[in-house]
Design a protein around this nucleic acid. Structure first.
Length: 211
DNA sequence: CAGTCGATCTGCT
DNA sequence: GCAGATCGACTGA
């Protein structure tokens, strides 16, 4: 008997789960205060066939939670200073998940503002995957944490958003083939102001080494 | 507003 | 060594 239907809904490839996550609520209670976002933008990553996925080249200590049971969090550290969080999907062993790219803060504005450096607008508090993770206070200590117990909680909408209410397109910041239109695996609530601005993945400019 | 660049962890070559 | 699922500060119009 499945006592948690939301968890079982996640036991599918991330591309199938993505639209059902939009409009859902994700909370982190650190023991002092709770911050909740309404999810407005996600990005799907699949395993073996997805060159844009961290799991494409197999399991490593960093990405191992992606290979675990659905309904858990995968948090990674990147670019030397940012955390990003994924909802692990698929059956155990299938490294598929959804990167939380943007959301609207609906609870804990003051805590979220305090965690973020200098947000000019509340709309920017969780606009972008690293911003969202920072506003929610997510870091590697929460990697692998259950989304349906403990400090985290995930609530999917009772009925998924209407098909006319969301859009999909190429992923952001994924270089090479993984970012092409062959993988239109970014999903967002159409016209939502908290959705992150699209920026095409661009190879970093070659830096002059010695002037 | 568009372009550029630093921060400095992680995994693969 | 190097590039990366990024952000924010800074530059020059």
């Amino acid at each position: 008997m499945e006592t948690n239907t939301d968890r079982s809904r996640l036991a599918r490839p991330a591309t199938a789960v993505a639209p059902t996550l939009l409009g859902g609520l994700f909370s982190h209670d650190d023991g002092v205060s709770r911050v909740t976002v309404r999810i407005t933008e996600v990005e799907a990553y699949l395993g073996a066939d997805d060159p844009g996925s961290h799991a494409f080249r197999g399991q490593t200590p960093r990405n191992s939670s992606m290979f675990g049971a659905p309904g858990h969090l995968y948090v990674y550290f990147t670019y030397g200073m940012h955390y990003c969080a994924n909802v692990v999907c698929g059956e155990p062993g299938q490294p598929t998940g959804l990167l939380l790219r943007a959301g609207e803060i609906v609870e804990g504005h003051e805590t979220a503002r305090a965690r973020r450096k200098s947000p000019r607008l509340d709309l920017d508090l969780a606009r972008g995957p690293a911003r969202l993770a920072q506003a929610l206070g997510l870091d590697r200590t929460l990697d692998g944490a259950d989304l349906f117990a403990g400090p985290l909680s995930l609530t999917l909408p009772g009925t998924p958003v209407d098909q006319a209410a969301f859009s999909s397109g190429p992923r952001v910041g994924v270089a090479g083939a993984g970012g092409s239109t062959a993988y239109p695996w970014r999903y967002w609530l159409t016209d939502d102001p908290t959705v992150s601005r699209y920026r095409a993945a661009k190879p970093r400019a070659a830096r002059t080494v010695n002037g």
